[in-house]
């Protein structure tokens, strides 16, 4: 017992403490930002380097804009490696959870009206999505009691969200994840993040849960399990799509074995991009995300 106490005292207060050493590597977590927009010459190598079409170019009246789709980016840093001008960087902690109704892309760089010298690239060839050629899946199931997927969006009241902000009980649902996101969620329970202090907990049954934290693109093999877990959760049931696979299908988009993201099956409340999102990103979405959701509900 004495030894336990000594260890606990020696480890000190950890919750919320940052990393204790100076980082030596460029981070691959967080949000992609143009840290030196003025250096960009619009050559578009970053767009070409991206294997998952997370970057695209849009031509505007007087120039062009680079768009970034956080829900697709897997953080492979190939765009950063490709850029000769060191324009791009991942900024950790600048989490970009997405609320319902927010666009799934953001403006990374605006080259309109800037004194750009090089010829703009042809954007037509660059904006395509690998999932586009997937054949229609109107009839998702042959004998799932003729349920129409995605399940319809459910309304929730401001008061509900206000209550959940103080006590959010989540049921975790792994439906095709690589277990990266799951590991980060386990880390949330550890002393560095300690979600229980904020009233957040992961519960054992969907019947005890207010929200589902869903990881993975929803593999078709687990559709039945997903459906039954969702319907077993009492209303208002929020769905957090954790990680890129759950946001958009990620690198598995277009596969015969998966749906392209959670929103193809269940109504998603908050998307948390990242491959995987860091525990800090997830925590931010579970707290700050709900706060902003309440503001949106208030306005409506």
């Amino acid at each position: 017992m004495f030894e336990n106490l000594m260890i606990a005292i020696r480890s000190g207060f950890l919750t919320g403490t940052p990393t204790r050493f100076k980082p030596h590597a460029r981070n691959a977590h967080g949000s992609l930002e143009a840290v030196a927009a003025n250096r960009c010459n619009g050559c578009g190598v970053c767009v070409k380097a991206c294997p998952v079409n997370a970057l695209s170019v849009r031509t505007t009246e007087d120039g062009m804009e680079f768009l970034f789709h956080p829900g697709r980016c897997v953080g492979c840093v190939r765009c950063i490696d490709a850029c000769t001008k060191s324009v791009l960087r991942f900024i950790p902690g600048n989490s970009t959870f997405q609320l319902p109704g927010t666009p799934d892309q953001k403006k990374l760089l605006d080259l309109s009206r800037s004194g750009m010298t090089s010829t703009p690239i042809d954007d037509g060839a660059l904006v395509s999505s690998p999932g586009d050629n997937k054949s229609s899946e109107e009839c998702v199931s042959t004998n799932l009691e003729n349920i129409k997927f995605p399940l319809s969006t459910e309304a929730y009241k401001t008061a509900d969200i206000a209550v959940l902000r103080n006590s959010l009980h989540c049921r975790h649902l792994d439906v095709g994840s690589c277990n990266g996101c799951d590991n980060e969620m386990i880390a949330l329970g550890g002393p560095h993040y300690d979600v229980q202090r904020l009233g957040i907990d992961f519960v054992a049954s969907p019947r005890h849960a207010d929200a589902l934290t869903l990881t993975g693109p929803i593999s078709r093999n687990s559709l039945v399990a997903t459906y039954e877990t969702f319907t077993a959760t009492p209303k208002p049931r929020l769905v957090f799509a954790v990680g890129n696979c759950a946001c958009s299908g990620g690198i598995f988009e277009g596969s015969y074995a998966v749906f392209d993201g959670a929103s193809k099956v269940v109504p998603v409340t908050i998307r948390i991009p990242g491959c995987p999102p860091t525990p800090g990103d997830i925590l931010n979405a579970l707290t700050e995300g709900l706060k902003q959701l309440q503001t949106i509900c208030d306005r409506e």
Partner: peptide
């Protein structure tokens, strides 16, 4: 979990990614 988190932070700090 404390030690695992510290190791993963070392991963991220020296090689850029927690995994």
């Amino acid at each position: 979990l404390v030690l695992k988190e510290e190791l993963q932070r070392i991963n991220a700090g020296f090689f850029g990614h927690r995994f």
